[in-house]
Structure formats: C-alpha cells, structure tokens
Design a protein around this nucleic acid. Structure first.
Lengths: 208, 208
DNA sequence: CCAGCAGGTTAACCGTCGTTCACCGCCGGG
DNA sequence: CCCGGCGGTGAACGACGGTTAACCTGCTGG
C-alpha cells in the first residue's frame, strides 16, 4: 500500500480520468498537500507526523522538506488556500447572480454545498486546526474567513431587512454549520440527493 | 475514587480565588475538568499541556495526577460525560413530549439549543478532539453519539415518512451542525435572542 | 496528641517528533 | 562524458511535554 509507485511520464495517462482533471497533474507538492489534508482531517493536524505524511505519498518523512519549509507552513498554505477559494468564489457567484438578494442567496448556498461535498476533508481541517497555526498565518486566515462571512451577511441583511448585523451573522454561521455537516454524514446518501437535501434545508433555515 | 466532597472548611488558603468566583463550590476534580474543557476548546486538546491546566486552577502540572490517571483519561471522562448527558437527555425529553412526532422534534430542538448555549466549550471539544482519544474510549463515545443520533432519526422518520433512514440521518446531522454553530457566533447576540433564532432556523431546516 | 492520608511541590526521566545534516543516485544539457 | 542540482535517504539532535519519584504539609478522626 505504501508503494505509490511510478507515476509514468507527464501527459500520458489522461484518457480514463475525464472528470478528475484537476487532480491529474500531481506535482509531488500537490500530492503531498492532498494526502496531508486527508490525514489531518482524520486525526487532527497535531496528531499526524511528517513520517505519516511522507508514507502516504511513498517517501520518507524528511523528504517533505524538499517541498515545504515546515509542517506549519504546509498547514498554513492549506488553510489560506481554502479560505481564498471560498472568499473569491463567493464574490464571483454573487456577481453572476444579478441584483436580487434571493438569487444571490441561492447562489451562495449552491456554492457552499458544492464546496462542502467536493472537499469534506478541507472542511474539517478548516475549523478544527486553525488554532494550531502560528499567529500571523492564523490572522490571515481569519481575515479571509471574515470577508467570506461578510459576503453572506450583506446578502442576508437585504433579505431580512428588519434584522441587525449580529443576527445575520449568527444566521450565516448557522447555515455554514448546517452545510458543513457533510463530513459527519459521510457517504450513505448519494451525492446528488445529498446536495439537493442540503440546498433545501439551507434555504429553509436561511429564510424561514 | 475519593468523593472529595469535603472542602476543608472555611477557605482561607493563600490565593485560591484566582478565576473561580462565580460557580458555587465544585470539587477540585470538577474545577479541573471545567478549566480543561475551556482550554481544550480554545486551543485543541493536544495543544494544551498539563501545566496549563494546572495553572488554570492555581496548582502545578503534576497535581493533576492526584485526580486523574492521565490526560487522556480526563479527555475521555469529558467526552463520555457529554455524550451521556445528550443521549439520556434526548430520551427523557422525547418521553415527556408525548406521542406526537412534531412535539417530540420540538422538544429535541429545544434540548439541543439549550445544551449548545450552555456548553459551547464542550460542543467544540466534542467533535474536534474525539480522534485523539485512545481507541476504546473513542468507541464508547461513538456508541453514545450513535444512540443520540438514532433518537433523532426515529422522530424525523415519523415526520417525513417518505424518506429513508440515510436521508433522515443526514438531516439530523445537518440540524446538529446548525445548532452547534453557537461557538462560532459567540456572544454578539443575547442568549434569549440567539436561542429563539436557532430554534426557528432548526425547525425550518428539519421540516422544510 | 499522634498517625495518616489527601493533595501539592520540585526535579528528573523519557519517548515522541519536528527539523537538520551529510551523503547519494538519477537525469538533462553543455 | 561529465556535471549540477533536484529529490530522496538514514542518522542524529534538541525541544517539548506527559508521567513518575521523592518529599512535604496541614487537616481530621481515633
């Protein structure tokens, strides 16, 4: 199992993997990041050793340091990456959705559901292992998170124009919690059904 | 072991009035457990040392071992305790709510909201630090969790009698996620308003 | 009044783990 | 054909943190 084996040449084996195009230029660095994310999600970042991460991609522990400055740097890159994708994605989706707050909310929900179903491991790491980041990186992540939340708050505030900002913020966090429950109810339901269920529940929660 | 109920009469020891002014007079054991829960919630169980825990109640690190066999045992007791309170509480509330599934669901939601608002720290530790428990304890906790979830699933299944068990389970987890978002939107909104908001959102999500 | 024990203290031990070091095989370009 | 550097290896190091040991103290019950 540890024998990850020969990865063939570049541009060779793309025929059978139509829908996983993004995971197919594996560039060691990204392999490591992905394997690490998986392990972090399962056991928690501090419980995973660099040897474990190395083993997961078929190398020894210290080989990691050819690609990352430190384990913390790895975690930082992971968390900042997620947070950026979320914050940027939300901005885009809102812009594409037009001026109606209802349409914008629907776009945000679709986006978050999609993300949660695609990246359950990252979701877990995202709010479990933030406190184990060095202060500076943690601050950066929190800034991005805040930006993302405020995106939601702005939309929610226009829908429920009686509510104050604190209520909208609580509402947003509640919807995140709802959608990000995917890692807990893993697998049983098929992905399309799960997506539909979450979208409906999130919409009811956000507007009801 | 030792009930330790005897609190050494009138307290006039040097500096025991550090940060435990509000709670009545819990035993050392419980003081430690509570302080540890707080620290675990803030930084993650593996990131807090026994010295930190000791310092939080005004003693040195190794003093902990007069009350607990190990740090893991402490965490285990904490998590098993939470899980038992939830599982037992749910059973009770359902029994008190009568035969109507709608009333039962409302009772479950009230209970979970109450718990989440009362124990944000425990909520966080509960699903962040489970994987850092030794296997046996982790299994016990998961059994209790499962019992709690099944309590919800049974009620939900009677409300949505078209849905299968997997869908109901996913629904239950989603509602947990929604309600357990309290630690993320800490404090801004007053407790009664927060409770009301969460109850309404949870109800909409569960039934909508 | 004395024994004993619950509960603390400091110092030391020891395993784990992140990180560094010195060395090495492979591969592509002058 | 050599050569540089990229990526990998095993060994070693140092810090940190859980746990234990040895010793101390002040109630409390007989």
């Amino acid at each position: 199992m540890t024998r990850a084996g020969t990865q063939a040449g570049p541009g060779r084996s793309a025929r059978d993997t139509a829908l996983i195009a993004d995971t197919s230029h594996p560039s060691r660095r990204e392999q490591i990041l992905q394997a690490a994310a998986q392990l972090f999600a399962e056991r928690g970042a501090r419980a995973v050793g660099v040897d474990d991460i190395g083993a997961a991609v078929g190398v020894t522990g210290p080989a990691i340091y050819r690609h990352f400055a430190s384990k913390d740097a790895m975690l930082a890159e992971m968390l900042v990456g997620i947070s950026e994708r979320l914050a940027d994605g939300a901005r885009e989706r809102i812009a594409e959705a037009g001026p109606e707050p209802a349409a914008q909310l629907r776009a945000l929900i679709d986006f978050q559901v999609e993300f949660a179903l695609d990246n359950p491991a990252l979701i877990v790491v995202h709010d479990r292992d933030l406190p184990s980041l060095p202060g500076a990186d943690a601050a950066a992540v929190r800034r991005l998170q805040r930006r993302y939340v405020e995106e939601w708050v702005a939309v929610l505030a226009r829908l429920h124009h009686g509510d104050d900002a604190a209520a909208c913020r609580a509402r947003a966090h509640a919807v995140f919690g709802l959608i990000n429950s995917t890692p807990h109810s893993a697998g049983r339901l098929g992905r399309p059904a799960m997506g539909e269920l979450l979208r409906r529940m999130a919409w009811s929660a956000a507007t009801g």
